[in-house]
């Protein structure tokens, strides 16, 4: 899932300062699961904004609404009917970066500000603990590396083994980070694929990653031609 964390309240309050009617919009998918931008968090943020407005003697109107997914126009269209949405002059989106930007496309004349920092594609390891597993590089090598990603989990994104900073299974830059290549080594041995460690993995083609410019795909079997215009 996409993992995000809430921005500091001070930063949120600064970005909405001066607006008369703020619509806080939660997102019900990834960020709800990573407990940063779901409805529960939206209610909490709204109440802090109201409280602060009151202390400042302001008459800010704050409403809370939620989209099932902010990255899907179908669900954003449903927001039109939500109380306070149409009249709001500022939308505080608790979606990931994609959600915030799609909200901008949905409401081109409203100010839309982010309530979260989108952090990574990752997993939930324990309550309140998420770690990165994927960078969406667009050219998956997991079949070669025993299912452990060197792009996202090695601090230097090495493709041919560990650097000299691997010690006792840990990465030299942070003892909380496991050395991805130690994990790849252990795993390939366990599944009898240690021969893969001998392969020289050639320099990558990063065009599939963000380095080729913003990415998009079109599925010919699904697409309706007039819908493929990109902003």
């Amino acid at each position: 899932m996409i993992v995000a964390e809430q921005k500091k309240m001070d930063e949120i309050l600064r970005s909405i300062r001066g607006y008369r009617s703020v619509a806080v919009v939660a997102c019900g998918t990834c960020v709800a699961v990573s407990m940063s931008g779901g409805e529960k968090e939206a209610l909490k943020i709204a109440s802090i904004i109201r409280h602060r407005a009151k202390l400042d003697g302001l008459d800010t109107r704050v409403t809370v609404t939620s989209a099932i997914r902010q990255c899907d126009m179908e669900f954003l269209d449903e927001l039109d009917d939500a109380p306070g949405m149409v009249d709001s002059d500022c939308v505080l989106s608790l979606g990931c970066g994609a959600g915030v930007q799609f909200m901008v496309e949905k409401y081109p004349y409203k100010v839309v500000v982010p309530g979260l920092n989108t952090t990574f594609l990752g997993v939930n390891r324990a309550p309140g603990y998420w770690t990165e597993m994927c960078q969406g590089c667009g050219n998956c090598v997991l079949e070669r590396t025993g299912g452990i990603c060197p792009v996202s989990r090695c601090c230097k994104s090495h493709f041919n083994g560990p650097c000299g900073g691997s010690s006792g299974g840990k990465c030299e830059i942070d003892p909380d980070i496991g050395c991805a290549w130690q994990m790849i080594y252990d795993r390939l041995k366990r599944i009898g694929q240690e021969d893969r460690l001998l392969d020289i993995n050639e320099a990558r083609d990063w065009r599939t990653s963000r380095d080729g410019g913003p990415r998009g795909h079109i599925r010919a079997d699904i697409v309706v031609a007039e819908d493929t215009q990109r902003e």
Binding site: Q182, Y185, D186
Partner: peptide, 15 residues
Amino acid sequence: PFADPEELQLIRLEK
């Protein structure tokens, strides 16, 4: 010579 895992470091050196 002191980094881990020993065998993989040697494999990488050979590479």
